[in-house]
């Protein structure tokens, strides 16, 4: 019993179904372990954590120059910016919006730079449900390829103060 002292010679090899279960469980753990490196090389969805140190003000300046040179439209006073396929796109998270609206083409790959100019935020792409952490001081680079067209809202899913639930953004993907 678990509440009384064990006999002096308590250490023995497991037997019977207990032994079988330990074997099965260990086998399953090996599968779990190998699945991740496998997907890293063969899978299309990986979080590599690529990031560069950046001052919030400098990141904001990069966003501004990206908007100035790539702006294609405006919606409710917010610029819609189209990145060159294969090129860089910038998204600034701040209390309580994602700036600007991004425009991508389906099947093209972009280097999407995300950072915050104030506190921590969460990048959550709907309705696909892809989520990444956004930190001030870190230029988080997602090498991303949209595989479907449409309007995709971005919402913040890291608590960032009283306006947290109003913090949104948008990505438009066309053919």
């Amino acid at each position: 019993m678990g509440i009384s002292a064990p006999p002096a010679d308590w250490f023995k090899a497991p037997s019977g179904t207990e032994r079988a279960w330990i074997g099965l469980a260990l086998l399953w753990c090996i599968v779990l372990t190998l699945a991740m490196p496998y997907w890293h090389f063969k899978g299309k969805q990986n979080s590599t954590g690529e990031a560069y140190a950046v001052e919030p003000a400098k990141f904001a300046a990069r966003v501004q120059s990206f908007v100035a040179s790539n702006k294609v439209d405006e919606k409710n006073g917010i610029p819609v910016v189209e990145a060159a396929p294969g090129g860089d796109a910038y998204l600034q998270a701040q209390m309580w919006t994602f700036y600007p609206i991004l425009k991508f083409r389906k099947g093209q790959t972009y280097r999407l730079h995300i950072s915050s100019t104030d506190i921590q935020h969460g990048f959550s792409l709907l309705p696909i449900n892809m989520n990444f952490q956004v930190l001030p001081g870190y230029d988080h680079v997602l090498t991303i390829t949209p595989t479907m067209t449409g309007d995709f809202p971005i919402i913040c899913n890291e608590f960032c103060g009283i306006g947290h639930h109003q913090m949104t953004g948008k990505i438009i993907v066309t053919e």
Binding site: W28, L32, N46, I128
Partner: peptide, 22 residues
Amino acid sequence: LVSFAVYYFANWKALADVWHVR
């Protein structure tokens, strides 16, 4: 173990359907 495997691989399947990202 069977429920575990079903749930686990269903999640890999769901992941395979989202945008590509590295």
